[in-house]
Simulated assay, not measured.
Amino acid sequence: MTTNTATPKTAYSEINNLVYRSYLPNIISAAIDIGVFDELRYKPMSCAQITDVCGADERIMDALLEVLLALTYLEKDKSIYKLSPLADEFLTQASEFNQLGAIKQFTTHNGPLANLTEALKGNIVDFDQHAWSNESAMRGIEQGTKAGALQNVLAFVKEIPEFKRAKKMCDFAGNSGYYSYAFLNENPDLHAHVYDLEQVCKIALQIKKDEKNYNRVSYHSFDLIKGDDFGCDYDFFFSSHFLYKYDTPESLACILKRINKSMKIGALFVSNHISGGMKGDHHLTLCIVELITRSMGFPTHCLKEDMLRKALLDTGFEIISTKAPNYRLAYPELILAARKIQDV
């Protein structure tokens, strides 16, 4: 699979947002099963109160309520949720107009939300960090970035002076290294070090062996859970869609301190992550993504900009520039560039 940085002329987000709506029957059905609509018919409640009366997991319930809010099936005043008139009439058992049976006809028994009701009840599987450690998944992830995400990142990074001078980069949890190959095409002096799980690296060595600049990429097996190191003396450190697992200010600062130690003074750090705050169809899509993520046992799929900024400033970095989320993309990411200014 060759890295191509031509840019699509149309917006794949229009298809992606539509496809994500196919998960809605399972989501609405799970909300019915757990009793969200029936309980809210009695009185408005907070997330914690709904969680309690439904006997649910609060983190997953919180994500579910945000999807229902985005659908306007719920209304929210500060932290209190209440039923919309639409949900009251058609999604509660006590209503003579309820259409619960019709909703059930559209649910499926496969896909990431097939067991959402059980996850809401607290029967959450342990997250499998090897879920994407296979060739099909790796190729699919790379192909997905070609719908505009890769090109969006490259257009931003290639104009940064620190990138133009960089000679050694870390592609952190970089999968097959598809971002690295795009960067190498723009900087002839750069050598990329891609760090990921052992099985991912083995597959990457095979599927990228005929790629241009393959000789300028080194693959390194590592596992952060085991405390593995990820190299040193980097001029450029890139992280895309990985830092979500550090979902508290303390854990994020901890990993950024380790990243700081791997970089030279003056080196460039670039983050590419979903940061939330979307509007319209994108808001609904990302609410669904968050629900899927939490039901799979992963903390979140959103890295808030203010938390990232503060953590970087607290760990020896200064912010250089940012690129706002691009609504043409399937998952509009905030791209943030920072410079290491001191050791920590």
Rank of each mutant, 00 (worst) to 15 (best):
H193E: 09
G277A: 12
P249S: 03
F237I: 07
V289T: 05
D171T: 00
G280R: 09
F269A: 07
G177C: 12
I203R: 01
H283I: 06
A173D: 10
S221Y: 12
N213C: 12
M278E: 15
C254K: 15
G280A: 12
G227V: 04
A173T: 13
N213D: 15
D228I: 07
Y234Q: 05
I203E: 00
E198H: 03
A155M: 05
S218P: 14
L184N: 08
P249F: 02
L256P: 04
A192Y: 00
F236K: 07
Q199I: 01
F183K: 00
D247C: 14
H241M: 10
I265C: 11
Y178H: 14
A253F: 11
L252Y: 02
K245I: 15
Y214S: 15
C254A: 15
H191V: 14
H220D: 11
C287R: 08
I288D: 00
Y195S: 00
D210V: 13
H193Q: 11
S271N: 14
V289E: 07
S239A: 14
G231R: 04
E162S: 02
C201L: 07
H220R: 06
E211Q: 11
R216Y: 08
K261V: 07
R258I: 09
F156I: 06
Q206V: 10
N175Q: 12
M278G: 11
D196Y: 00
M263R: 04
N187I: 09
G280Y: 09
H241T: 10
M169T: 09
E198R: 01
A182D: 09
V289H: 09
V157F: 13
P161I: 02
S239W: 01
R216K: 14
L286A: 05
M169C: 12
D229P: 08
L243P: 03
S221Q: 09
A182L: 09
D235L: 06
N272K: 11
H283Q: 14
L256M: 09
D196E: 04
N187M: 08
A192S: 02
E186K: 15
K158Q: 15
K209M: 09
S239I: 04
S275V: 08
E159W: 03
Y219Q: 06
Y246D: 05
F156A: 12
G266N: 01
E186D: 14
H193N: 11
Y195D: 00
H191T: 11
T248C: 03
K208A: 10
